[in-house]
Computed example of a mutant assay.
Amino acid sequence: MTELRKNDHRLLQVLRAPVISEKATLVADKNEQVVFEIAPDATKPEVKAAVELLFKVEVESVQVLNIKGKAKRFGRFNGKRKDVRKAYVSLKPGQEINFEAEAK
Score class of each variant (00 low, 15 high):
residue 30 K to L: 08
residue 23 K to T: 14
residue 72 K to P: 03
residue 26 L to C: 02
residue 6 K to H: 09
residue 1 M to W: 05
residue 19 V to N: 08
residue 93 P to D: 12
residue 92 K to M: 10
residue 58 E to Y: 01
residue 78 N to F: 09
residue 79 G to S: 15
residue 1 M to R: 12
residue 19 V to K: 08
residue 81 R to L: 14
residue 21 S to N: 11
residue 33 Q to P: 06
residue 7 N to I: 03
residue 4 L to P: 15
residue 25 T to S: 13
residue 94 G to T: 04
residue 7 N to V: 02
residue 65 L to I: 14
residue 54 L to M: 14
residue 75 G to S: 06
residue 76 R to E: 08
residue 100 E to N: 15
residue 82 K to E: 13
residue 26 L to A: 13
residue 10 R to Q: 14
residue 33 Q to K: 14
residue 61 S to L: 05
residue 29 D to T: 11
residue 49 A to I: 06
residue 42 A to M: 03
residue 95 Q to V: 03
residue 20 I to S: 13
residue 21 S to D: 13
residue 42 A to D: 04
residue 71 A to I: 03
residue 33 Q to F: 00
residue 96 E to G: 01
residue 3 E to D: 11
residue 42 A to K: 00
residue 90 S to F: 08
residue 82 K to Y: 03
residue 65 L to N: 10
residue 23 K to G: 10
residue 96 E to A: 09
residue 12 L to N: 05
residue 38 I to Q: 01
residue 68 K to E: 14
residue 63 Q to C: 05
residue 89 V to E: 10
residue 80 K to N: 08
residue 82 K to I: 00
residue 26 L to F: 07
residue 85 R to W: 05
residue 76 R to P: 09
residue 51 V to T: 04
residue 60 E to Q: 11
residue 83 D to F: 13
residue 20 I to W: 13
residue 9 H to G: 07
residue 62 V to L: 03
residue 76 R to W: 10
residue 59 V to C: 03
residue 53 L to K: 15
residue 73 R to K: 15
residue 39 A to C: 09
residue 96 E to S: 08
residue 21 S to W: 02
residue 29 D to L: 13
residue 62 V to Y: 06
residue 20 I to T: 12
residue 31 N to P: 02
residue 68 K to I: 04
residue 8 D to T: 04
residue 91 L to H: 01
residue 46 E to N: 07
residue 79 G to Q: 07
residue 61 S to K: 15
residue 28 A to E: 11
residue 36 F to L: 07
residue 68 K to T: 11
residue 81 R to I: 04
residue 3 E to T: 08
residue 36 F to K: 00
residue 56 K to S: 13
residue 60 E to H: 10
residue 12 L to D: 02
residue 65 L to R: 01
residue 48 K to W: 12
residue 69 G to A: 09
residue 102 E to W: 14
residue 97 I to D: 04
residue 44 K to G: 11
residue 53 L to M: 14
residue 44 K to Y: 09
residue 57 V to H: 06
residue 93 P to I: 04
residue 28 A to F: 05
residue 44 K to L: 06
residue 16 R to E: 06
residue 93 P to W: 03
